[in-house]
Computed example of a mutant assay.
Amino acid sequence: MRGMDRSTELSEFLRSRRARLAPEDVGLTAFGGRRRVPGLRREELAQVAGVSVAYYTRLEQGRGRNVSAAVLDAIADALRLTDAERSHLHQLARPAARAGRGAAHPQRVRPAVRNLLDTMDNVPAYVLGRRMDVLAWNRLAAALLGDFGAFPAQRRNMAWLIFLDPASRELYAEWDRKAADIVALLRMHAGSWPDDPALASLIGELSMKSDEFRRLWAAHDVRDKCYGVKKFRHPVVGGLTLHCETLVLPQDPDQSVVTYHAEPGSPSAESLRLLASWTLDAAGGAGTADRGAGEREAVPGER
Rank of each mutant, 00 (worst) to 15 (best):
D211F: 00
P124M: 08
P166G: 08
A93C: 03
F151R: 13
T57I: 11
E85T: 04
L92K: 03
P194C: 06
R108W: 09
G228N: 06
R114C: 04
G64Y: 07
A200H: 12
R214Q: 04
A282E: 08
P23W: 11
D281R: 15
F232S: 10
V258F: 07
A143R: 04
H88G: 02
E9C: 07
R108Y: 07
A99V: 09
S266I: 01
D196I: 01
G284M: 05
Y227L: 12
Y55F: 10
P194M: 04
R303I: 13
A104I: 05
R18I: 14
D224L: 10
W175I: 04
K230I: 08
V134Y: 05
S87A: 13
L117A: 15
G204I: 02
Q61T: 11
A190I: 01
V134C: 15
E302Y: 13
I162T: 14
H243Q: 09
A269R: 03
L79T: 01
L199M: 06
L45Q: 03
L40C: 05
A70F: 06
R35W: 05
S52P: 01
L89N: 08
G284H: 03
F13P: 12
A173F: 05
A54T: 14
G149I: 03
A54I: 15
P300S: 11
S271D: 02
G285D: 11
G239L: 15
R108F: 15
R98D: 09
L164D: 11
V113G: 08
A30M: 01
R98F: 06
F163I: 00
L186G: 00
R187P: 00
A173G: 11
E60M: 09
N122W: 12
A198D: 14
P300R: 02
A84Q: 10
R223I: 10
S201R: 13
W278Q: 11
D121E: 11
S210L: 05
L275M: 02
L247F: 14
T82R: 12
R20T: 06
S271K: 12
R108I: 02
L79F: 03
A76E: 03
R2D: 14
A179H: 02
F31D: 10
R94I: 02
L280H: 14
R101N: 13
R223P: 00
M132N: 08
P152T: 12
E297I: 01
A269N: 01
P38W: 00
V37D: 10
L272M: 13
V109L: 05
V26M: 05
E9K: 03
Q91K: 09
A143G: 15
L59Q: 08
W160V: 03
V51R: 02
R155Y: 06
R63C: 06
A180F: 03
A76K: 07
E60F: 08
K231M: 06
E9L: 13
L274P: 00
T288D: 11
W217E: 03
